[in-house]
Design a protein around this nucleic acid. Structure first.
Length: 183
DNA sequence: TACGTGATCACG
DNA sequence: GTGATCACGTAA
């Protein structure tokens, strides 16, 4: 293993995720993540490789973006070595860079809850499936060191009841009491 | 709590 | 081809 996906999910908290979309830079602090691994039933790669999940099997450091419920783009970071399908879903951000643009994209008047949820933050940062398989260390999509989290909490992942026992794994991580964490 | 929404995948 | 399902968000 390159590194355990749950460790990487924790380490991503507090970092700043930025994109350039339509020539505009927006970004936010990562405050909530979830880990997924091919060895548990919550993961898209549990039953093996398919056209959709193929990028999860690539060398880590690229994006896995897919459409969920026909509406929402979901943004993950692939984390393991080639052939080992692990990924971290980014579930919530605290908006920091280009907040005015983010508010326009979200058609919001208040900054509240702009990016609290995996489907919302992709819209806010202009991430869609065209980013699938692209590096997360590029001029259009990158991660910066920012804050060192003081208090991380974990719990079961959201929306994966189909995973049976694995739905109870405490693989969701967030910053304690952070107001930008999703419901 | 209910449902929109359309890609995806396991069938045949 | 077809149909069930889905790592959500919003309205109510």
């Amino acid at each position: 293993m390159r590194s355990d996906v749950t460790l990487i999910a924790r380490q991503l908290l507090g970092k700043r995720l930025c994109t350039r979309a339509d020539g505009i830079v927006t970004g936010g602090l990562i405050v909530e993540t979830e880990a997924y691994s091919e060895r548990e039933k919550g993961c898209h790669a549990y039953k093996g490789i398919t056209p959709r999940n193929a990028v999860m099997y690539e060398e880590g450091g690229i994006a896995y973006v897919y459409l969920c419920y026909g509406i929402h783009e979901m943004f993950n970071i692939v984390t393991n070595r080639r052939g080992k399908a692990d990924a971290v879903l980014i579930r919530a951000l605290e908006p920091v860079v280009g907040v005015d643009v983010i508010m326009q994209r979200m058609k919001a008047r208040s900054e509240k809850k702009l990016t609290a949820g995996p489907g919302k933050l992709t819209k806010a940062l202009g991430i869609d499936r065209s980013r699938n398989g692209r590096s997360v260390s590029s001029a259009d999509l990158w991660i910066e060191e920012a804050e060192t989290p003081e208090d991380i909490v974990c719990g079961p992942r959201i929306g994966i009841d189909y995973a049976g026992d694995d739905a109870h794994l405490p693989w969701r991580f967030s910053l304690r009491d952070n107001p930008w964490v999703s419901k």
